[in-house]
Write a protein that binds this DNA or RNA. Sequence first.
DNA 1: CATGAATGAGCGTTCATTCAT
DNA 2: AATGAATGAACGCTCATTCAT
Lengths: 198, 198, 198, 198
Amino acid sequence: MSPRPDVSEERKNQILDAAGAVFGRLGFHDARMDDIVRESGLSKGTLYWYFTSKDAIITGLMQRIFDLGMGALRTLEGADGTVRERLLAYTRRLGDDFQRLSAVSSIAFEFYAVAARHKTVRHFLKEYFTQYRATVARLIAQGIERGEFRAVDADTVATTLAALYEGLVLLWFVDREAVHWDTQGSDSVGLLLDGLRP
Amino acid sequence: MSPRPDVSEERKNQILDAAGAVFGRLGFHDARMDDIVRESGLSKGTLYWYFTSKDAIITGLMQRIFDLGMGALRTLEGADGTVRERLLAYTRRLGDDFQRLSAVSSIAFEFYAVAARHKTVRHFLKEYFTQYRATVARLIAQGIERGEFRAVDADTVATTLAALYEGLVLLWFVDREAVHWDTQGSDSVGLLLDGLRP
Amino acid sequence: MSPRPDVSEERKNQILDAAGAVFGRLGFHDARMDDIVRESGLSKGTLYWYFTSKDAIITGLMQRIFDLGMGALRTLEGADGTVRERLLAYTRRLGDDFQRLSAVSSIAFEFYAVAARHKTVRHFLKEYFTQYRATVARLIAQGIERGEFRAVDADTVATTLAALYEGLVLLWFVDREAVHWDTQGSDSVGLLLDGLRP
Amino acid sequence: MSPRPDVSEERKNQILDAAGAVFGRLGFHDARMDDIVRESGLSKGTLYWYFTSKDAIITGLMQRIFDLGMGALRTLEGADGTVRERLLAYTRRLGDDFQRLSAVSSIAFEFYAVAARHKTVRHFLKEYFTQYRATVARLIAQGIERGEFRAVDADTVATTLAALYEGLVLLWFVDREAVHWDTQGSDSVGLLLDGLRP
DNA sequence: CATGAATGAGCGTTCATTCAT
DNA sequence: AATGAATGAACGCTCATTCAT
């Protein structure tokens, strides 16, 4: 009677979950399709039924991860408080997220490496950062409007902030003992926002 | 006995040159030892005589590249001009270097990706960034001493600057049209240094 | 109970039609069951409902094709005219058929290749050619009876003619520009029949 | 001192020998590269060092087999005796060869099947049969010159003979009990040559 | 030091077949 | 009868590394 429920979204998530875990553990290159098969509890045929290749899984995972990151940023726009307060809160949250999803952060740099060779990946990241900077720029513009910041170029500041976040993640990733998110994150962003004072 | 000139250094450089070109073109994973063999003009046996494995070549190349980067920074310490002037000059030079060695930048992110899994690589990068931050910190300290900056924590600023540089390279790498080194580099660093004014 | 019309024959033909098209295009090996599914407009389950395997489809198609060929030959027996006239008419018709069903001819050789390994296929072809030769032999016997040919061994001539036909198809198949059915067919058969003159 | 002797020809033959045996036993499709590896006594890497793919081995084998067949035919041109005698002798020899290399004959039809899809293979076979027919045509022309045959078109006869040979091999291949090379070969060719009498 | 033919474990992908619905 | 998601054994090919010369 009932038409079989569509499990395809569920399956895809099942596969991406498994892929995320395996890639985080072994990296794109050392991870075997069989590892993902085992981790997902599905069969190899099923993996290939939903994703055409290992690369397709990598790309799918990339979209999922960056979409998540984008969502977090977007909530800032409508939130309460001064822009500075909101950016500092976001900074803390970013640290929490990365610390929690340590595995994910180790994949992120593989995406950037892949981007050098894969046009599609490069385009995706381009689009992502374009939106990311635009969102931050709107926040900065808000700050300028409210008299919180002096009349700087919002886009320039947005790129600077985006760069700062990415760079901090990288340094933290390489040396977690030397770079403490709790203090360094707020300090760095604070330093930058200090330069924006009217 | 015979005073045959030591070609060992020359050979190693020949191999690393070839590896740099090939890795830049194809990435670590897609580059074959045979590609490096062809590019270097040496034989496969000779490659393995000087480097025990593909990984050893990757690591060797990493040291060479990062050592170069470190050298550029060190020259700042003894140079003339205000700290701000020197940092801005360095920023411009960094942009020139990356634009010139475009291939190298695409490898850099592979190193970070590798770092996640390779203890040795991670240790090397850790050490590199430690020194990098220390060098920048000394510059900042100079600036504070001279009254150019207010009494901030030099280490915090150094980490912030290092993060900013890495992040800018990343953003530029992903979207060269949107991120113009010429203006964005100076602007970002300038913005940060503005926050340090006494 | 309900006198639902038996679609079973129709379905089988639908599948064999599709299989013929796909095999002609791709060959037995490169053709996928999914290709036949798509071409037939049926579902995969339905294919397997009517044919137990890919091999069964191949065998089914073989029977259909060779049965067609046999039918054409049989009409010769009761036809009017001298045996020579009838054989030459058949030769022309054969050429027309192959030219029309070009795809089929490319499958024929796959059947012969399969015959080497598949007992069932070999037996089928054996039986086919036995009947084929017998039919031709009866025709030749008719010619001898009527004084059209000298008293040769009808079986030997039948095998020779059968071989000639198969060989011509092969040569035409490999090089259609060099072997023109229109002339070569009649000429070859004519040459052979010349040797049978009383 | 001595430069290592070039074993590449030897290796290639070693591989083609093994491939011939395996393909004859299992057919192109069912034969695994590992079967050829085992049969050849070489390693898989070595197979791929000398042949780029399974297809390359198939093609290589095809050239070798057909080249052999061509050689046998060529010896006829300069031989003694009437053309009829020589052709009949060749017919017997063909039968012997096929009976001896039974495995090879089962591959031949796979080549024809492959030719339908592979341009290169088709071109090779085209060229082969073109030369084959030309050689036979020269023989027939000799016979006409000497007054052994009437003034027929040598090319037409050559194609007819070539077709006859191929067809006989096919019939013999499908039903060895019904088609006896010893008698049928000579009889068929004899019958055709009878038609050429002045 | 230098060479390059040889190795073989290992991987991504395929696809005929099944079976719960 | 009909469907199509699910299965998993199997295969062609790769490529870092070795070692006899």
